[in-house]
Design a protein around this nucleic acid. Structure first.
Length: 418
RNA sequence: GUGGGUGUAGCUCAAUUGGAUAGAGCACUGGGUUGUGGCCCCAGAGGCCGAGGGUUCAAAUCCCUCCACUCACCCCA
């Protein structure tokens, strides 16, 4: 029986792990100086948390969750996204009592049972950032700039920022009716899916890739003409602040997002290099969610960044990073090997990456191994060197070698390496 | 859930109209150098040709079924 990983679940292999580590290090660094605190909610929650927040009718909840019933008959689900859990924790632990503005982030896996394809997996990883407690556009700005900074910090270029406003629920229902009316008026030109959507969820027609639907949509009314005065002022202020900071963006009134809880600002950072997937990062404001989940009526905004997607772009753009030992020590003969063993562990205690070979092979084989591992220096210690008290230190790049005294060897090596 | 594409060595790929012990490059192991790596040369190891069934004197090649991977739809990070 040959086991393999299950569909949509990927091993992050050693060759990719350094890129993943670097992404997380950059994220944590930027979050720290931006005042965001990390928290780690569990991966499993009551199913109802997700259905109540994301929306019963959304694809995510209606058909993509990994859901099971526990021994007491309670329905629980692996999280398909992180925001619901963060809001639950925010309410449960009354984090707002400690500080009215809470800036939080979390990094970890999400699970959705969809058919995998390029840039889409059943277990995937997100970096999530959220600001709780501030209704104003400056928090929208902060969240968006944070996402942009992260992408810049890892060296990714050629992405575009798209923003939109969905208004508040009141404006949206007016718009929804207007849009539905427009779409039904041109029903004949829509694909079968969109005819259905026009009735159930007209905003989704904006996402359709069928040409005739795109044509219909291009003449559709814009949400931005329907949002009320406060929503308009909010959106206007965000745009002005983005300009103040020199962040370029595109207003895309067709940017609608699939989760029910969004209101006002939504945004995506997009690429055209990931096949059918274009969003690397997406998010928006969700002012009503805390209250809807039984907490205080506090506003919030956040984003989720797809780590697989970001890593894929990074790998396409740059060579993967590698690590190699600071030094490789060759021991020839039983006596030398024992000394080498001691030095290896002593140097490692000092934080120096040392490797040796355990197979008691000849010098040639060990040199080859040192070379394969990319060691820039090799210390050669045989019976002769033990006798004379001087070992050979070879620089693998310049092909030069020097004698090193075995007395105070560790200090001598430290000097060379550091 | 629905379509298309692809399954041959660890990786990337060959194999003529169906033809004999299925090959190459890279990687790996050993040797050429008994104490010096990369480059070069030589040798070696590594395959149920995705699985099962069928057609045929003969199948990696043709047919059927299944499986896996992949891309796309749906939807999303």
């Amino acid at each position: 029986m040959q086991f393999s990983s299950i569909k949509g679940f990927k091993d992050i292999l050693p060759s990719e792990a350094l890129t993943w580590q670097r992404l997380q290090e950059e994220a944590r660094r930027i979050f720290r100086y931006s005042g965001f605190q990390e928290m780690m909610p569990p991966l499993l929650e009551m199913t109802e948390l997700f259905s109540r927040s994301i929306g019963e009718e959304t694809d995510i909840v209606s058909k993509e969750m990994y859901t099971f019933t526990d021994s007491k008959g309670r329905s629980m689900s692996l999280r398909p996204e992180a925001t619901a859990s963060l809001v639950r924790a925010y309410i449960q632990h009354r984090l707002y009592e400690q500080n009215p503005i809470q800036k939080l982030f979390t990094i970890g896996p999400m699970f959705r049972h969809e058919r995998p394809q390029k840039g889409r997996f059943r277990q995937f990883h997100q970096i999530d950032a959220e600001i709780f407690g501030d209704p104003g556009p400056r928090s929208d700005l902060e969240i968006i700039v944070l996402g942009m900074s992260l992408i810049e910090a890892v060296g990714l270029t050629g992405l575009s920022l798209q923003i939109n406003s969905l208004g508040c629920p009141k404006c949206r229902s007016g718009f929804r009716n207007e849009l539905r009316g427009y779409l039904l008026g041109r029903k004949e030109e829509l694909c079968a899916d969109c005819r259905r959507r026009a009735e159930t969820n007209p905003l989704r027609v904006f996402d359709c890739k069928v040409e005739t639907c795109k044509t219909v949509v291009s003449g559709a009314p814009s949400i931005l003409d329907f949002i009320d005065k406060d929503c308009r002022i909010h959106f206007q202020a965000l745009q002005e602040d983005l300009q103040v900071l020199g962040v370029s963006f595109t207003v895309n009134h067709m940017l609608v997002r699939g989760l029910d809880y969004y209101n006002r600002t939504t945004f995506e950072i997009q690429t055209n290099r990931l096949g059918a997937q274009n969003a690397v990062l997406g998010g928006g404001r969700y002012d009503g969610l805390s209250k809807q989940l039984g907490g205080p009526d506090h506003p919030a905004i956040g984003f989720a960044l797809g780590m697989e997607r970001l890593v894929a772009l990074l790998e396409e753009q740059a060579q993967p990073e590698t690590h190699s030992p600071d030094i490789f020590i060759v021991g020839l003969g039983a006596l030398a090997e024992k000394k080498v063993l001691q030095w290896v562990y002593e140097l490692r205690r000092q934080g120096i990456w040392v490797e040796m070979d355990y197979s008691s092979k000849g010098l040639k084989a060990q040199m080859k191994r040192a070379d394969r591992m990319g060691a820039s220096r090799v210390l050669i210690v045989g019976e002769d060197e033990i006798g004379s008290g001087k070992a050979v230190l070879r620089n693998m790049n310049t092909k030069t070698q020097d004698e090193v005294s075995l007395e105070n060897l560790l200090q001598n090596l430290r000097k060379v390496i550091v």
